[in-house]
């Protein structure tokens, strides 16, 4: 177990160090989030629609579309000088590689979530009336499941010709439960509903993430092995 965690830690450290030095994915995801917020700021007529009614949906769509920009490049970074073959020929189990990739992607997407919340609060003046910890729970559970699926499918598409174009086509249908319950939970918390009011959403999102993580860890070996 100690070896397993050391290997996962090494891969997460490597991914985050590379991201800090290149800003390859965070710059694309961050620019997208800010752009969406700015565009909707000018596009929505506030005399007709209250921003709070739209905010939850817009936040989730920005996270999903922005997140896919980053997740799509998960394994593209490993193509440099055959580096991924170096990992595959190491004694690191395939499920450990998957969990490490999910962990580093999850941390990057949490940063995206914070940025998205910040820009939406800034441009739409949306106030969180409900429990902020519950909001964090809804967003992080949803993002965890999304990251697990996105990471798995990024491994599927990285060596295909269509690559990053194919990823959303494959992933979107599977994300429907996450988006539906994520938007519902977020919107209720924006409206000031108590934690017990979003328990159902939290449970579905937790179950969704657990299934995505376990199935991803099991299936990943079939994705990377010839």
């Amino acid at each position: 177990m100690k070896d397993y965690l050391r290997q996962v830690g090494a891969l997460v450290w490597k991914d985050l160090t590379l991201e800090l030095r290149t800003w390859d994915r965070m710059s694309a995801m961050g620019a997208f989030a800010v752009l969406v917020a700015v565009l909707f700021h000018y596009a929505v007529d506030r005399t007709v629609i209250h921003p709070r009614e739209l905010a939850a949906g817009l936040i989730w769509l920005t996270i999903v579309f922005g997140g896919l920009l980053g997740l799509g490049r998960t394994f593209a970074l490993e193509e440099e000088d055959g580096a991924f073959d170096g990992i595959l020929t190491s004694p690191m189990p395939k499920d450990a590689i998957f969990l490490a990739k999910v962990s580093s992607n999850f941390l990057l997407l949490l940063l995206l979530v914070l940025l998205v919340l910040f820009v939406f609060v800034l441009f739409f003046q949306v106030a969180v009336r409900g429990n902020p910890f519950a909001l964090f729970g809804v967003l992080s559970l949803g993002v965890l499941g999304f990251t697990a699926l996105g990471t798995l499918y990024s491994g599927v598409t990285v060596r295909t010709r269509m690559g990053e174009t194919l990823l959303p086509v494959l992933v979107f249908p599977l994300l429907i439960p996450m988006v539906v319950f994520g938007v519902r939970g977020t919107s209720l918390l924006f409206a000031g509903v108590s934690v017990s009011g979003v328990e159902g959403s939290l449970r579905v999102l937790g179950g969704f993430s657990l299934v995505a993580l376990l199935s991803g860890a099991f299936l990943f070996r079939f994705v990377v092995e010839d």
Binding site: K14, T17, L18, R21, D81, G82, A83, G86
Partner: peptide
Amino acid sequence: RTFLYGHL
């Protein structure tokens, strides 16, 4: 192919 990361 060296399996090395250029930014490390």
